[in-house]
C-alpha cells in the first residue's frame, strides 16, 4: 500500500494566486469606487478577508486532508475539511486514464490524474511530479494502460 499526499508547492502557488487576485480586485475597487469611500473600504475589506481565509486557512487545511492511497487492487482518494470524503475505484473497472501535467513538467505540483471508470471518474489532484510518475508506473504494472 502506498500513500501519496498533495504537493505543498501547489498550495503555495494557489495562495499566491488568491493574494494576487485579491490585490487586483482591491486595486480595481480603489480606482472605480473612490467616490464612495465606505463602499470602497467595504469591498477591499471583503476581498482581503476572503483572500486570507482562502489562501491561509482553507487551502492549507484542504491540502493537508488531500491524500491518495494505492493498493494492488484499488485506488482511494481522501479529501475534505469539515466533511471528509473518501472515494475508491477498483483497478479493473478503470476504462481509460488521463494525466494532466502543468508547466515545467508539473514542477509546481500541478499534476493531476483522472481515472475514468464505469459511471463516472475519480480525480487525483496536486500530485508531486515523482508521485505522478510512480502512480502511472503502478497503473501500468497492473495493466490498466501502457505508459509510454
Amino acid at each position: 500500500m502506498q500513500e501519496y499526499r498533495a504537493d505543498r508547492a501547489a498550495g503555495y502557488l494557489l495562495c499566491v494566486c488568491v493574494c494576487l487576485a485579491a490585490g487586483l480586485l482591491s486595486g480595481a475597487a480603489y480606482l472605480f469606487l473612490r467616490r464612495w469611500a465606505f463602499v470602497m473600504y467595504l469591498c477591499i475589506g471583503i476581498f482581503c478577508t476572503l483572500a486570507f481565509l482562502t489562501g491561509f486557512v482553507l487551502t492549507p487545511l484542504y491540502f493537508r486532508s488531500l491524500r491518495c492511497i494505492v493498493t494492488p487492487h484499488q485506488i482511494t482518494c481522501r479529501s475534505g475539511i469539515l466533511l471528509h470524503r473518501e472515494k475508491s475505484v477498483r483497478m479493473r473497472t478503470i476504462q481509460y486514464v488521463q494525466i494532466v501535467t502543468g508547466p515545467f513538467d508539473g514542477a509546481l505540483g500541478l499534476n493531476f490524474i483522472v481515472l475514468h471508470v464505469y459511471g463516472g471518474s475519480m480525480q487525483l489532484f496536486f500530485l508531486r511530479r515523482r508521485d505522478r510518475r510512480e502512480i502511472a508506473r503502478l497503473l501500468s504494472q497492473r495493466g490498466v494502460f501502457h505508459a509510454s
Binding site: Q95, Y96, V97, Q98, I99, V100, T101, G102, P103, L110, V144, F145, H146, A147, S148
Partner: peptide, 24 residues
C-alpha cells in the same frame, strides 16, 4: 495507436495525455 492502445496528447501550457486501451 501503439501496443493496442489509443494515445492522445494535447495542450500548450498544461499537457493532457489520454491513454485508452483498445480492449476497453
Amino acid at each position: 495507436v501503439e501496443e493496442g492502445q489509443l494515445f492522445i496528447q494535447d495542450g500548450i501550457l498544461f499537457t493532457r495525455r489520454r491513454y485508452v486501451p483498445g480492449r476497453n
